[in-house]
């Protein structure tokens, strides 16, 4: 009996460990593939030049900038609204029908396929609000796509702030708002920022929503305003690997683009880790 249990334990342990290693393996294979084939292409001119000669040469500068601009709009739109909504839900909302409705909406919003967001963006931002296919329309569409993620992670970090912080502040005569402002939000910030950046880094790599709302196949010049079309790294990658007239020839460029996109996303994630570490240290939590 005892022996059987021991074997059972060992088998269980081995199988969960293997699964965990498998996850690591997937990431390693993807990274190895892209880094080995893409890093050789990366040079200053690849980053700083526009594509040239029918997109068989040159760099990805407009796509890189386009992605940065769109991401910036996404941040400006979704971060404040998402954090505010999380504060409402966690600090103010009572457990009643309307709160349950809001929470259900957020959960469902998170489950909507990104291509549906694209369609929605076309209807609302591009057409109804007259933004046209533009950086603005794409940024806002990605913003809505990111919102549920930001709200959920922000609410989670607010929840982690002990009730004793709130009680201590209230008992000293602080209003609820003062308590949130001085004694809840600052300590929740590391978690909120981390979640926010991770959500936004996901949005930066999205293709379907911008496909509908503003990304362009080829624009050698940078957009002049927020209401112009733009190039973006994920879409550029798609073009270079499936739509180009000489796919074999531009394969290295595709890998270079993928490499850059991954560096960008990893950079954002690294930024999130650094911010979290620094703020944690500052508040000694």
């Amino acid at each position: 009996m005892n022996k059987l249990r021991k074997i059972e334990h060992t088998l269980g342990y081995i199988s969960v460990t293997l699964c965990a290693v498998l996850v690591l393996l997937f990431l390693a294979v993807i990274l190895w593939d892209i880094v080995s084939k893409g890093s050789g292409v990366i040079s200053w001119s690849f980053i700083a030049d526009a594509p040239s000669e029918g997109m068989t040469a040159g760099g990805v500068f407009p796509a890189l900038m386009g992605t940065l601009f769109v991401t910036l709009i996404t941040i400006i739109f979704s971060f404040p609204i998402g954090v505010a909504a999380a504060i409402y839900l966690n600090e103010y909302a009572k457990m009643n029908f309307s709160t349950r409705l809001i929470r259900a909406s957020i959960r469902n919003l998170a489950g909507v396929p990104s291509i549906v967001y694209g369609l929605f963006g076309v209807a609302l931002f591009v057409q109804a609000m007259g933004m046209g296919r533009s950086i603005m329309a794409s940024g806002l569409t990605l913003g809505i796509l990111t919102l549920p993620w930001i709200i959920t992670t922000a609410e989670e970090s607010l929840k982690n702030i002990p009730k004793s912080f709130r009680d201590g502040s209230l008992a000293l005569g602080a209003t609820k708002w003062e308590t949130i402002q001085h004694n809840v939000l600052p300590y929740a910030m590391p978690g909120i920022l981390t979640g926010g950046i991770l959500g936004i880094s996901r949005a930066a790599g999205e293709t379907a929503p911008i496909l509908f709302t503003g990304v362009a196949f080829f624009l050698p010049d940078l957009p002049g305003s927020l209401f112009d079309q733009f190039m973006a790294l994920p879409y550029h990658l798609y073009i270079m690997s499936t739509q180009h007239h000489a796919i074999e020839l531009v394969r290295p460029i595709a890998y270079g683009t993928a490499f850059l996109l991954i560096v960008l996303v990893f950079g954002l994630n690294l930024g999130a880790i650094i911010i979290r570490y620094r703020l944690r240290k500052k508040f000694k939590m």
């Binding site: 002990p162 004793s164 912080f165 009680d167 201590g168 209230l170 008992a171 000293l172 005569g173 004694n183």
Partner: peptide
Amino acid sequence: RKKVGMVFQKPNPF
């Protein structure tokens, strides 16, 4: 609450 202060069971310094 400014007139009626409170100290809690578990020390809760900020």
